[in-house]
Simulated scan of single mutants.
Amino acid sequence: MTVVAWVVGVLFAFAAVASVIRIVKGPAILDRMIASDMLLTTLICVLGADMVFNHHTRTLPVMIVLALTAVFGSITVARYVSKQDPS
């Protein structure tokens, strides 16, 4: 079971690093928003994997708050970008 945990941890770390790189490099605001959604989704998956490996549900409220933050952030950026569109 520890080998599976290490492999999952490495894959989650790779996803987090890739999304942080995309957030820094950009080039557009929508690229950064998609990358931040990917980072939040990766964090939610990490918390879910922690719940599975350690047999608890203590982090479920944190996962719900992170999901709501991602949704409201995406809606806010979409509204901002739609108002910036000249057409």
Rank of each mutant, 00 (worst) to 15 (best):
R32L: 12
L40P: 06
M38Y: 05
L47E: 06
L30D: 04
V62T: 10
A78Q: 08
V77E: 09
G9L: 05
T76P: 15
S82A: 01
H56V: 07
R79C: 12
D31H: 11
Y80E: 15
R22D: 00
S74N: 12
L11S: 01
L39V: 02
A67H: 07
R22H: 12
V8R: 13
S19Y: 15
F12Y: 04
I75N: 09
L68D: 07
V62C: 09
I29R: 04
V17C: 15
V17P: 13
L43K: 07
V8N: 03
V65G: 13
C45E: 08
A13L: 01
V4W: 03
R32H: 09
V7H: 03
P61I: 01
V52T: 04
A18W: 09
H56I: 06
T57L: 08
A5S: 10
T41M: 05
T59S: 04
T69I: 05
T42K: 04
T69E: 10
S19P: 08
A18I: 06
W6T: 02
Y80K: 12
G48N: 11
V10Q: 05
S19E: 09
L43G: 06
V4D: 14
D50S: 14
M33K: 01
R32V: 10
A49L: 08
V71W: 15
I29K: 05
A5N: 01
I64N: 15
K83L: 14
A70C: 13
K83N: 12
Q84M: 08
I64W: 12
V4I: 09
C45W: 11
H56C: 12
M38S: 05
V62M: 11
R32Q: 13
G73L: 13
L43Q: 00
M51K: 08
N54E: 11
V52I: 10
V20L: 06
S74G: 14
I44D: 05
M51Y: 08
I29Y: 07
T41L: 02
W6Q: 01
T69K: 02
V20G: 02
P27K: 07
V52W: 13
F14H: 03
S36P: 04
M51Q: 05
L60M: 14
I64Y: 07
L47N: 08
V81Y: 10
V3L: 14
T42V: 05
M63C: 11
L30N: 07
D31Q: 13
V3E: 12
A16C: 04
I64G: 13
A13F: 08
I21S: 00
L39Y: 03
F72Y: 15
L11P: 01
L47Q: 03
V77Q: 09
V8T: 00
W6C: 04
L43P: 00
A67K: 06
I34N: 00
V8D: 00
A15F: 00
L43C: 01
F14Y: 02
A67R: 06
D31I: 06
F12V: 02
K25R: 04
V20H: 01
I29C: 02
G73C: 13
L40C: 06
V17E: 05
A67W: 13
F53R: 02
F72V: 14
L66A: 13
A28C: 10
L60K: 14
